[in-house]
Write a protein that binds this DNA or RNA. Sequence first.
DNA 1: GATTCCGTTGTGTTGTTGCA
DNA 2: TGCAACAACACAACGGAATC
Length: 209
Amino acid sequence: MNRTDRLYALAVELSASAPRCVPARALAARLGVSVRTVERDVARLRRLGLPVEPRRGEGYRLAEEAGAGGVLPPVVLTAEEAAAVAAALRDVEEDGLAAPARSALRKIAAALSVPEREPAGPPPVARTVERALARGRALRIGYADRTGAVTSRDVEPRILLAGRGSVRYLVAWCRLRDDVRVFRLDRIASAVELDDATAGGAAAQASGR
DNA sequence: GATTCCGTTGTGTTGTTGCA
DNA sequence: TGCAACAACACAACGGAATC
């Protein structure tokens, strides 16, 4: 696993474990590297803007603003995968989980019908990002940094991290910087899906690995 | 092909902090 | 006070790219 892949995996591990802490030793074991390397990677993620909190005696965790609370982070599924999940949920309906299964089915049905219900005009940035992620397409975004300066970047979306609040983070390969970058969704002023596909494709995004 | 350079990674050490 | 875990630093090994 190269460094970029490891950064993605680390972000996913922290996101999946939020709000719980994950000891550096456990992260090192899962990623197959030393604790020292995990610490370096965490430091990289923090420099990139991902709010990873070190908790002495507990480990690392995503900060409240980025961590998952009572809900899962967004999981990107292909139409086929969504259909498979829906079929499984219909089976579960008979096992005492009818209410949550029906609720999940409604959400999947609604998501699958999005293209038909989309209003005219440019779609919101978040929806464009999610769609590019699902399709494995690159994006051209206008991104405002901390000073407010907006730069145009071509990026290859990898992971979308979201929490209870409004702050969401897009982990993507930045072609401008030729390195992985973390973008706050609320700082993306504009997003346009490009025709060229990302290196990883949509399947890698759905699984996160 | 050999050498050099550079980035990455692992190991070891010391210090700090929180908790029982 | 001892333990566990993170932070920071130095050092060495390794591999790939660049150069001759």
